[in-house]
Design a protein around this nucleic acid. Sequence first.
DNA 1: ACAATAAGTTACCTAAATGTGATATAGGTA
DNA 2: TACCTATATCACATTTAGGTAACTTATTGT
Lengths: 103, 103
Amino acid sequence: MNKIYCPLNYTMKLIGTKWKPLVLFHLLEGPVRSGKLQNKVPHISNKMFTQTVRELEKDNLITRKVYPVVPPKVEYELTEKGKSLESILKSLDSWGKEMSAFS
Amino acid sequence: MNKIYCPLNYTMKLIGTKWKPLVLFHLLEGPVRSGKLQNKVPHISNKMFTQTVRELEKDNLITRKVYPVVPPKVEYELTEKGKSLESILKSLDSWGKEMSAFS
DNA sequence: ACAATAAGTTACCTAAATGTGATATAGGTA
DNA sequence: TACCTATATCACATTTAGGTAACTTATTGT
């Protein structure tokens, strides 16, 4: 008892992984091509990148737009739901910047 | 090329796990005894609770205060660094609340 | 003697996350 | 014909996270 329902659980389920916040963060500026987005995220593997955007798409945080050309062209873009994370993502980033300034 | 250094990485290393944000969130009100804190976090196991607070302590986000009594009494409390996460934690929580309101 | 207590540890196990390397695609170009 | 391109998938291995149950500790109250 005295247990508290905490919506934070829901949030962590959606974006509580190593890569998701990074990918979302780099989409804040607008739509980005797949390869370029992947390049913006240091050290992410091919597989994890794909897996991450797939899940973000499933959870309606980003959209995936495929152009039927060869070689393929794919763009990812934040949905409204994704955009609503903007201030949180920026806060997390600037908190990290402040904190890593020490040590 | 075009890779961007992102302090978000640092942030995610410190608090990017299933339980850490939850534990920190429940410390926002002030110091809490170990058992009581654990009870506030639904479904956390004994082991994960201990492991989580150990890591938070190591990263200087919380302090652990042991009273030399029997049976043991231990209190956890946010450090200044931990307190600086307050607005982020609350934002994550209220974002979760808004979003889980749909679906 | 022995049970109760609060906080934690230990050994052992399963599940989830992440990484690596090879392969697929299909049209344009050398 | 063979290769290049951007995007993605597959099989497999490894690493990390998380769970369960038993055990420890030292004192007080029975």
